[in-house]
């Protein structure tokens, strides 16, 4: 059922899925952290802007967001600037996934920060630490432990949701298996894809479990 060529296509698809997941989560985490800090900020403009961001990206379908980045933005660009804009599929997929996951992660991080006792902020202030020092040395290290389970959840969601970018023609794991299945008339490919997703999500769950244990050593 599998020849070398097919195995290579499956492997490539899997690789695209992994790349999409890691790139989106990596940049999405940083963006999400910034948005979370904005959400807890007392500055009205920062606070409101980030609220609107989360409202939009959590409130609309990811598939639609992918289409907007891939199709609508180049169209708008052409209308405004009068020239074509190059929007590679992988880049479009990454941008949409990053913007989407950042909104969810921001809420996860915000909840994590708010779960830290007010006394920690006071103790940090009392020993003379500024806001940045307090955040990076006292609050965020404690937040990590709290946010790992929901973060792990979001990671797995994004891993699976990368399948949505097949809609803009990117050959990731799901699309490869679907194309192989419909061109050969064999159903097995879809189940193999499911198996590969399961292996990846299991591995991720295991990894985050380890991480959680590591960050809980002080409890």
């Amino acid at each position: 059922m599998f020849n070398v060529n097919q195995i290579a296509r499956f492997g490539e698809g899997t690789l695209v899925t992994i790349e999409l997941t890691l790139a989106s989560m990596f940049i999405g985490t940083m963006l999400g952290m910034l948005i979370a800090l904005g959400r807890i900020s007392k500055r009205p403009l920062v606070n409101k802007t980030t609220w609107v961001y989360v409202w939009i990206f959590r409130g609309t379908p990811l598939l639609l967001q992918i289409m907007i980045v891939y199709l609508a933005i180049p169209m708008i660009y052409k209308q405004v600037m009068g020239e074509r804009m190059l929007m590679p599929q992988f880049l479009a997929a990454c941008i949409a996934l990053i913007l989407n996951t950042a909104a969810y992660l921001a809420e996860i991080f915000r909840a994590g920060i708010l779960s830290i006792d007010k006394g920690q902020f006071e103790a940090a202030k009392a020993v003379g630490m500024n806001h940045t020092q307090t955040m990076t040395k006292v609050i965020i290290p404690q937040t990590i432990r709290v946010v790992i389970p929901p973060y792990s959840n979001e990671f797995i969601m994004i891993l699976k949701d990368t399948s949505l970018v097949s809609a803009i023609g990117l050959l990731e794991l799901y699309r490869v298996s679907k194309e192989m299945s419909s061109s050969t008339g064999r159903w097995e490919y879809l189940f193999i894809a499911a198996g590969v997703y399961l292996v990846m999500t299991t591995f991720a769950t295991w990894g985050f479990g380890k991480l959680e244990k590591h960050y809980s050593r002080f409890v």
């Binding site: 006792d117 006394g119 920690q120 006071e122 103790a123 940090a124 009392a126 020993v127 003379g128 500024n130 006292v138 290290p141 404690q142 432990r145 002080f218 409890v219």
Partner: peptide, 21 residues
Amino acid sequence: VTALCMELGMVFQRFNLFPHL
């Protein structure tokens, strides 16, 4: 203000130690 406040050491009712350290 920050510099002057550093001259004050504070001990809280609920300790407020940093639990991860």
